[in-house]
């Protein structure tokens, strides 16, 4: 449980710091951290290079909001049919990819193709999704608070606590999975799929599980993102969204549960620390990505762990 304990002190931060900027950066870090943790499970642990998590992230936002506004149900209730949609889509895409034994590059290309198809549908289904203009989200999640009844979660500090709680929950769930026999089967598939199969591991089932889990986490992150930023647009399910999450995981380090969160913090926070024009920001982002891959193959967390090991 060590990783989740590391997050606990962060609950005290709003008492110490009242900086809106810091808390906002951390809210986005937690949300995108959930997306990155999901990608880390399917890629870092099970070794499948998916490009579908960006689409799942976007659908998470769209589906939750559409269920909420069409049926008049609460945010929490609307997440259930949304998760069902994601589950169904992941099963379909996963079934196609894994049944036909697509690997590495081919798996990446086919998941990318499905993600693009979904983005095109969202972009052109104007009656429901409002096309390129996107949707304005005016609702907020609610919570029952002792003594005050049902209140809306609005403002920076409540959102900080909500997203941190979601991140903790995701961390605990992924840690339980990764440390169990499921995680060991993931590792076996990553290291040598033929051997894993020979040893009696149902590789189809475990790859499917990793893929679905990653998409469910991505969808949770997408729903939180849409409701926090009050806005949902087709760009949220673009390739760039997928690539950003991949960059976070690599920057933070693939081998650990919280590495992706560190990566998310660095990539969300850095543009705020250094005042750059948009063009230079993209260039810095690219340069960081290149340098990390070539110089720090195990990410920031990997570097830290090695340094601690040596000293």
């Amino acid at each position: 449980m060590s990783a989740a304990w590391l997050l606990l002190p962060l609950y005290l931060l709003p008492l110490v710091s009242h900086s809106e900027v810091l808390l906002t950066i951390l809210i986005f870090t937690y949300i995108l951290g959930i997306l990155a943790i999901g990608f880390n499970i399917v890629f870092g642990y099970a070794g499948q290079l998916t490009m579908f998590h960006g689409a799942a992230f976007g659908i998470g936002g769209y589906a939750t909001f559409l269920m909420l506004s069409k049926f008049g149900i609460s945010f929490w209730l609307a997440m259930l049919p949304m998760f069902a949609v994601i589950l169904l889509l992941s099963m379909m895409v996963g079934w196609v990819c894994f049944k036909f034994r697509l690997r590495e590059f081919y798996f990446a290309v086919v998941t990318l193709a499905f993600a693009e198809l979904i983005r095109l549908v969202v972009l052109n289904w104007n009656d429901v999704t409002n096309g390129t203009l996107g949707l304005l989200v005016l609702d907020k999640p609610t919570i029952w608070w002792p003594g005050r009844g049902v209140v809306k979660i609005d403002g920076t500090v409540p959102w900080y606590l909500l997203t941190l709680t979601a991140l903790c929950a995701v961390t605990i769930v992924s840690q339980l999975i990764v440390r169990s026999w499921i995680g060991r089967n993931f590792a076996a598939i990553r290291l040598n799929e033929e051997l894993a199969q020979t040893l009696g591991i149902n590789t189809f089932r475990y790859k499917m599980l990793a893929f679905t889990l990653s998409n469910l986490f991505a969808a949770l992150a997408g729903a939180l993102f849409g409701f926090y930023s009050n806005y949902i647009e087709p760009a949220q399910l673009s390739i760039t969204q997928s690539l950003d999450a991949i960059a976070m995981v690599l920057l933070g380090g693939m081998g650990s549960i919280l590495g992706p969160v560190v990566g998310a913090f660095l990539l969300t926070g850095l543009p705020h620390v250094i005042e750059f024009s948009a063009e230079l920001r993209a260039a810095t982002y690219g340069a960081i990505l290149i340098l990390v891959i070539l110089l720090m193959p195990r990410g920031v967390v990997g570097l830290f762990l090695r340094w601690r090991h040596v000293s």
Partner: peptide, 15 residues
């Protein structure tokens, strides 16, 4: 790695 490095390079050249 080749994929990710080329993605980084895309950002740099485009900017």
């Amino acid at each position: 790695n080749g994929l990710l490095v080329s993605i980084g390079l895309i950002s740099v050249i485009e900017s």
